[in-house]
Computed example of a mutant assay.
Amino acid sequence: MRRLILISLLLLLSACGGVTTRPPPAGALVGDARLRPVEDDKTLLMRLYRQHQVWRGTPYRLGGQSRSGIDCSGFVQLTYRSQLGRSLPRTTSQQAGFGIPVNRAELMTGDLIFFKINGITQHVGIYLEQNRFLHASKSSGVMISALDSPYWQSAYWQSRRVL
């Protein structure tokens, strides 16, 4: 509410010619959405696919954070740090409270996707595009999976935007 009042005042002042306003910077919060130029999404997508090429098939290992074995939250944390220059918490449960909630229908490249398997176990991946996400799976290691597969559809829990 305070933000709305402040924006209204700024618009009034700018209409009088006393204040010049600039568009919000890329990544600035506006309501519940983030403004990100399309070019940034393309670059981000290329970085994530490159990360997949380097890490593809790396086996899953609980608590692991190296090419000899990595878990899902470690892979997400490492990917955000190395490819996006952004720090994330270490565990899936900590990551699940980071950023802002985003509707599944509004997923953008780089959003975090969370799952509950058997209603208990938490899993995290990074949304790519076209219902595909990058993650470290217990069965196949680092891979890309389809979000709309029956398995992942039934396990879907929430999504968060942290960029």
Rank of each mutant, 00 (worst) to 15 (best):
R161P: 03
R81N: 06
L29D: 04
E129S: 15
Q158Y: 07
V76I: 02
C72T: 06
V102T: 06
R86K: 14
S159D: 06
G57V: 09
R90H: 15
D32H: 14
T43V: 14
A136Y: 03
R34G: 00
H123Q: 04
P150C: 05
L48N: 01
V102M: 07
R81A: 15
V30T: 08
S145D: 03
L78D: 11
Q122G: 11
I144G: 02
Q153P: 00
D41K: 14
Q94P: 01
I113A: 12
S66E: 11
Y151D: 01
Q153G: 09
L35C: 08
S145V: 01
V76W: 02
Q130E: 13
L107Y: 03
V38D: 07
L128M: 08
Q83G: 05
A33Y: 11
G85F: 14
I120L: 14
A28S: 15
R34M: 12
T58K: 06
P89M: 14
V38T: 09
G69W: 00
L147P: 00
G125I: 08
S149D: 13
T121A: 14
G74T: 11
R50H: 06
A155F: 06
I120T: 12
L107W: 03
E106C: 13
Y49F: 15
N103Q: 14
E129D: 13
Q95L: 09
P150H: 13
K42I: 06
I126C: 04
C72Q: 02
L48F: 10
F75Q: 04
I100Q: 15
R90I: 08
L45P: 00
C72P: 02
R104Q: 04
T121N: 09
V102K: 00
S145H: 09
V102F: 15
I126Y: 04
L107Q: 00
C72Y: 09
Q130F: 04
Y156F: 15
G31K: 06
T58S: 13
F115I: 03
A105F: 05
T109D: 00
S145P: 06
I126R: 00
F115M: 06
Y151A: 11
K138S: 15
W152T: 07
T58L: 10
Y151S: 12
R34F: 12
D41L: 14
H123T: 05
R90P: 01
H135T: 07
P101R: 10
G99R: 11
G85V: 04
W157T: 02
G63M: 02
T121R: 13
E106A: 15
T121I: 07
Q83C: 10
M46V: 04
Y80F: 15
G119W: 09
L107G: 02
K42T: 07
V142W: 07
A136L: 05
G57N: 08
V124P: 08
S137P: 00
Y127F: 13
Q130Y: 10
F114P: 05
L112Q: 02
S73H: 09
A33W: 08
C72V: 03
N103H: 12
G97P: 04
V30L: 12
E39Y: 11
F133P: 00
V30Q: 11
S154N: 13
A33S: 13
